[in-house]
Design a protein around this nucleic acid. Sequence first.
DNA 1: GTCTATACGTTGATAGAC
DNA 2: GTCTATCAACGTATAGAC
Lengths: 217, 217
Amino acid sequence: MPAAPAPATSTGKPAGRIRQKNEKAIIAAAEVEFARHGYKGTSMNSIAQAVGLPKANLHYYFSSKQGLYVAVLNNILGQWENALDHMSVDDDPAEALSRYIRAKIEFSRSQPLASRIFAMEVISGGQYLSQDNKRDWFRGRTAVIQAWIDAGRLAPVDPAHLIFTLWGATQHYADFAGQICQFTGKSALKKADFDAAATTLEQIILAGLGLKPPARG
Amino acid sequence: MPAAPAPATSTGKPAGRIRQKNEKAIIAAAEVEFARHGYKGTSMNSIAQAVGLPKANLHYYFSSKQGLYVAVLNNILGQWENALDHMSVDDDPAEALSRYIRAKIEFSRSQPLASRIFAMEVISGGQYLSQDNKRDWFRGRTAVIQAWIDAGRLAPVDPAHLIFTLWGATQHYADFAGQICQFTGKSALKKADFDAAATTLEQIILAGLGLKPPARG
DNA sequence: GTCTATACGTTGATAGAC
DNA sequence: GTCTATCAACGTATAGAC
């Protein structure tokens, strides 16, 4: 009886210990470089130097620069799905929206590189993002909000634009952190700054939708 | 008595009719290319082809690729200052904020390329943006909002984060237009979509700040 | 699996005739 | 002012010894 096949990696090749470790290290280094210089602006050479390997090794683990970039993008999307989006019709609107805002701001704080790569990719046309079932996912979100409105639990607003408002406002703290620092004179945004952002945004959005803020522990 | 010197151009050279016309055409073509492919991803060759000139001519009018890029950025910033930011303490808060939201959304609609170039530049570190007196400008904006709050004309929120919320939410409709289209299944955002966005955002923000929407003609 | 050397294309920029 | 021809540098990717 043959052994079960090893789990496939992003390159489709079987995953030994060494391969797994090196792929992870390369993706991590690539994420930093892509976030700072964009896809075109990043060279395989700079990634190789950052991870401490000859650049030929990168081509051994990832067939091409584009393949490595797509692996980085998929890695980001995986983190996204784990961290967000657990709103359901049965939830209390105020509490669910508050949780969403805080989770998204926390993501901007803890994973700013991921947010920036994703932003640049979308701005550049998103040709490397698989669109899969994104539309269904979006329809599900708007349906939840619309159900709240229909039940009189939320002021009547356009659900799609509410989502885009939340998205844009929270994403801003990752993508434009540099500009925010310049404007406010800070050298870097700290946890307290993100907490203040979440609190202000929660305050405005909830009041704007006719909701009272949930009790918090 | 000597004639008045010709107005200086972005290259610092005197401006003849031909030069003025060609520089304008080159900047316009460069804006399209930079918005789609980023700074590094854009080649002088592609800009030259788009504007219908040999690429050597681009180097005749702009000393370098970087010089052309900075000229494009400055051109964008000029448009920005003309279109926005006329809030004053004497204004009615609801009306001033409503005007700001609609002007910013309208800018996302009419000048999406400018918004995208600016966004990518900020995400990439903003090394080509002169920071000038940006901090003073920002302090002025927050001061106006704080004055409204102190006078009891606005719910007490953090002025800085209110500005960032407005910024992020409105900018989103330019930078992430592609993603919005994918999610909503539209092929392109039309004026009605931007109007709906502005209306929803105005509704949420004003209610969120304890304001009633101003009468509109 | 690892690494050196190298092939080959593209890029930004310039020289110099017109 | 305009344009063709060209250069040097850097990019991705691969060949092949270890």
